[in-house]
């Protein structure tokens, strides 16, 4: 079995690597550097690392100032504090000015686990994708994370990178190349398509194996960029398979499911089911227990696929 790596760990490594290549990169954290893994960067580049303490509004504003003075500023904290607590600072100081601030938010979704609902960001994708100028990445594994970090550093303007606490297995082979706004078909299929993001890509691949045994061939798409959305790949999937399921560790309101529904309704309506958090807050528990409780399992995805395939008529 291949080793699981949390995307936050992949971020820490990619960031330290990026620091060597690009001296304009600076990193800010809000007293969570050991958890967000920005400590990896801080160890190598202490002069380019700024701990702002438990003060997320100032974290984002300071990142904006550094970016306005020519730096590429990576700002990290937990997703719930980054996107939620500092939303106005991200809106007015960062996004409005299209500044080079890369918000790398870790511990997103319910797999934060035991800390409970107060710490489980289930609305951050919706918040970030609603902001003009913002690019939104939700990598599914180590390779997508490394690609997202590199792409974020290359592009001019604000980026939100959503990262997780829990380990995920690799889903891409050696030749994988991350392209902003270009979804990846990780498994072919003609009967339905599951469009997944973050940790749900792995879960969707498990569901595809089960469904294949029943004779249902499912296309699995890793949507690592939520914005700009790869409408072309979504519409192709709708046209070619005729049935869609979205899967995300996020509210079904405004996130991947919302974005895909908008694209499909406008371009090529087909039966569609959104899997995610059903408009409720999370709670304490082990990550695996919570995924079962909130219906983010391979069995739930398989069930949703059967349902949309039936609705094709």
């Amino acid at each position: 079995m291949t080793k699981k790596v949390a995307t936050r760990e992949a971020y820490g490594r990619a960031l330290a690597e990026l620091g060597k290549k690009n001296s304009a990169v600076v990193v800010l954290d809000a007293d969570l550097s050991k958890s967000t893994k920005t400590a990896d960067f801080a160890k190598v580049f202490p002069d380019r690392f700024f701990n702002m303490g438990v003060a997320e509004q100032n974290l984002m504003g300071t990142a904006a100032g550094l970016a306005a003075a020519g730096k590429i500023a990576f700002a990290s904290t937990f997703a719930v504090f980054a996107a939620g607590r500092a939303f106005d600072q991200i809106r007015n100081s960062v996004a409005y000015n299209r500044l080079n601030v890369k918000i790398a938010a870790t511990h997103a979704g319910i797999t934060v686990g035991e800390d409970g609902g107060s710490h489980q960001a289930i609305e951050d994708i919706a918040l970030m994708r609603s902001l003009p100028n913002m690019t939104v990445f939700v990598p599914a594994d180590e390779a997508e994370t490394a690609g997202a970090v590199e792409a974020a550093a290359q592009m001019n303007g604000p980026v939100y990178i959503r990262l997780g606490r829990a380990g995920v297995p690799p889903i891409h082979g050696e030749g994988f190349r991350f392209e902003t706004g270009k979804a990846v078909v990780v498994r072919e299929g003609r009967d339905a398509a599951v469009i997944a993001t973050g940790i749900m890509v792995t879960v969707a691949l498990e569901a595809a194996v089960t469904l294949a045994k029943e004779g249902i061939e499912v296309r699995i798409i890793s949507m690592h960029t939520i914005k700009p959305l790869d409408v072309k790949t979504i519409v192709s999937a709708a046209r070619e398979t005729g049935a869609l399921v979205t899967a995300e560790e996020h509210s079904v309101i405004g996130g991947l499911g919302g974005a895909v529904s908008e694209a499909v309704c406008e371009n090529h309506p087909v039966p569609l089911k959104r899997l995610g958090i059903q408009d409720e807050f999370g709670e304490s528990g082990k990550p695996d227990e919570l995924l079962v409780k909130f219906g983010l399992t391979a069995a739930a995805i398989a069930g949703a696929v059967r349902e949309v395939v039936k609705r094709k008529g």
Partner: peptide, 24 residues
Amino acid sequence: DMSTGSLGQGLSAANGMALAGRLD
């Protein structure tokens, strides 16, 4: 040098610029 309007945000941006100046 910085868009403002939503109150309370200017000093944070100033800090960032001052840090960048020192770094460079």
